[in-house]
Amino acid sequence: MTDHSITGKTVLITGGAKNLGALIARDLAAHGAGAIAIHHHGDASKTDADKLVAELSGNGITAVALPGDLTSAGASAQLFADTVAAIGKPDIAINTVGKVLKKPILDTTEEEFDSMFAVNTKAAYFFIKEAGKNLNDNGKILSVVTSLLGAYTPFYSTYAGSKSAVEHFTRAASKEFGERGISVNAIGPGPMDTPFFYGQEGADAVAYHKSAAALSAFSRTGLTDIEDIAPYIRFMVSEGWWMTGQTILVNGGYTTK
């Protein structure tokens, strides 16, 4: 029987230097991962990535920090090549990279549109492609999207629109990679209590989001806490392997599909 536990597995996490990505790394390490590659964008996140690698290494995990701007296909290919060279072929590949823009359609520029789709769509596509080429058989691929895929709302056209494509990439990849036992899924958290959220929202919007979920009153912050997302991700890249081709919204009742 195939082993779908995390014990001894090799993991690649994009955007893994801080926030949700860093918590995923710590959580998988605590549950037995043997080696973890922490991708970070560049110099601005290098210090965080290096600190996390030192922390993981101090706990007996083989860990490495790998930089890269994943908005080109070549960068994704290089990231996987560097991962394989440093820690071996991954069993688990998790993409947390994302960019948010809250802006009316009438005010959105072409440059903003192109940037959003480069980060949220193109990077996700070629990450999935390279994961499919480089993962061990019976591996797991997971993309972080957004619960706005289940929302009827203005102002997030480029954010939700660029992430919605990843839902279709996920379905296609799950069919194409399934013959190798690879599960491919996406997870859509609600608005999370991280700097990623607050940079786009005014005080009134923050207050609304903190009260919008059915379970908001029971959340530490009223928002989706990253500590509540990590266990779902752990399940989806381990014992939850039989679920594939799915986009799961995990948000305390913020939106549904």
Rank of each mutant, 00 (worst) to 15 (best):
M1Y: 12
D3C: 01
G8D: 07
L12R: 03
L12N: 06
N19V: 00
L23M: 03
A29S: 11
H31L: 01
A33S: 07
I36C: 02
A37G: 07
H41E: 05
G42V: 09
T47E: 15
D48W: 03
V53I: 10
A54I: 01
N59D: 14
I61H: 10
T62Y: 13
A65V: 13
L66E: 12
L66I: 15
L66T: 07
P67A: 02
L70M: 05
L70D: 07
S76A: 15
Q78T: 14
D82S: 06
T83P: 01
A85P: 14
K89D: 11
I92C: 03
I94S: 05
T96Y: 06
V97L: 11
G98M: 13
K99C: 08
K103S: 11
L106Q: 10
E112N: 10
D114R: 01
N120I: 04
N120F: 00
Y125H: 14
I128D: 12
G132N: 12
G132V: 08
D137M: 02
L142H: 00
S147C: 03
L148Y: 09
L149M: 04
Y152V: 11
Y152R: 04
P154N: 12
F155E: 06
T158I: 08
T158Q: 06
T158V: 13
G161Y: 02
S162K: 10
K163A: 08
E167L: 15
T170Y: 00
T170A: 03
R171S: 15
A172V: 14
A173L: 00
V184T: 06
A186M: 06
P191K: 02
M192K: 06
D193F: 09
P195K: 03
Y198I: 11
A203M: 14
V206K: 04
L215C: 03
S219D: 03
S219A: 10
T221R: 04
I229Y: 05
I229V: 13
P231W: 13
R234F: 06
F235K: 08
M236H: 02
S238F: 02
E239C: 07
W242G: 00
T244P: 06
T244H: 05
G252L: 04
G252D: 05
